[in-house]
């Protein structure tokens, strides 16, 4: 009797092991087990245009998150070789590192805020999902370190994000995180105001003659990219901006003000960088053969 009981109790563990082999090891062996998983550095190698746009649109904020990267290579030169001075390869390496860092951090926030409980990341071959969201998911496109743990999700309160990269612009995401209902009225997504920080920015008051001609309020202001954490930094930026003004716009210098502003912090930038990456990475032929 004793032995039968022991055998049976081993059988209980055996059932677990059998299921583990059939539904975890076996799918692994015929999918991820056959191909080397792409590292974060590999998936970050192609810098998305939206990541460059983040650096252009939020220069001061980007510098705080990734010091020195914009100096290493100007954003304009990242996607196309403009033939400028300096070591372009070294600059690109710095950008890729910043991109990888952003993707990693952005994904951590995606996990920590529970985004994955309301947004899925897999497109099924049914229910017209390929029309609504894009091509049906393959296991190869999820075979990378940013899908550990996998972010497929089990519920769609919000739309699928498999191909979110490039679908909407960075400023749309900023406005959306501040208050989702401003850009999609009726949305039930929580707002994420802790992705923002307060600071000071330069803004230019409208040319009075243009204000009169167009009927716009004379106090209309146009913000200049870059929000600084302290007023002193913003004042310094103001001076730099005035010095750099082309002669035709010299008069604008007098209409430059430093005003309080809010902007994305480095977490917000990272999350947007991650969202803009989604669906843009495709495994290359070589990595399939490895």
């Amino acid at each position: 009797m004793d032995r039968i009981q022991s055998i049976l109790s081993v059988a209980g563990v055996g059932c677990f092991a059998l299921a583990f082999v059939l539904s975890a090891v076996y799918p692994w062996a015929i999918t991820s087990g056959t191909v080397t998983e792409a590292t974060i550095a590999e998936v970050a190698e192609r810098i998305t245009p939206e990541f460059v746009d983040l650096a252009e649109r939020y220069p001061a904020e980007f510098d705080r998150a990734h010091p020195g990267v914009r100096e290493a290579l100007t954003p304009q030169s990242v996607l196309a070789d403009l033939g400028g001075s300096g070591d372009r390869e070294a600059g690109l390496a710095a950008w890729r590192e910043a991109h990888a860092k952003s993707l990693r951090r952005g994904r951590d926030i995606y996990v920590a805020e529970g985004c994955w409980h309301c947004h899925s990341q897999y497109v099924r071959p049914v229910s017209n999902e390929d029309i609504r969201f894009g091509p049906v998911s393959t296991w190869l496109q999820d075979n990378n370190a940013l899908q550990r743990p996998v972010m497929w999700g089990t519920r769609r309160v919000g739309p699928d994000l498999t191909y979110e990269g490039g679908l909407r612009s960075n400023d749309w995401h900023a406005a959306h995180f501040w208050e989702p209902r401003n850009v999609s009225p009726g949305s039930v997504m929580p707002r994420f105001r802790w992705f923002f920080e307060e600071g000071f920015r330069l803004s230019r008051t409208i040319d009075p003659s243009i204000a009169e001609r167009t009927g716009l309020a004379p106090e209309t202001e146009y913000p200049i990219a870059g929000v600084y954490l302290t007023q002193a930094d913003a004042e310094a930026a103001r001076q730099r901006h005035i010095d750099a003004l082309p002669s035709a716009l010299r008069a604008e210098g007098e209409r430059l003000n430093v005003t309080p502003a809010r902007t994305l912090n480095s977490d917000g930038l990272s999350l947007i960088a991650y969202l803009q990456w989604l669906g843009t990475w495709q495994p290359t032929a070589t990595s399939q053969e490895d």
Binding site: W28, S32, E37, W139, D142, N144, R148, P149, V150
Partner: peptide, 10 residues
């Protein structure tokens, strides 16, 4: 386990 195999395990 990344991707599909990770999902199977999860």
């Amino acid at each position: 386990m990344p991707g599909a195999s990770g999902a199977a395990t999860a």
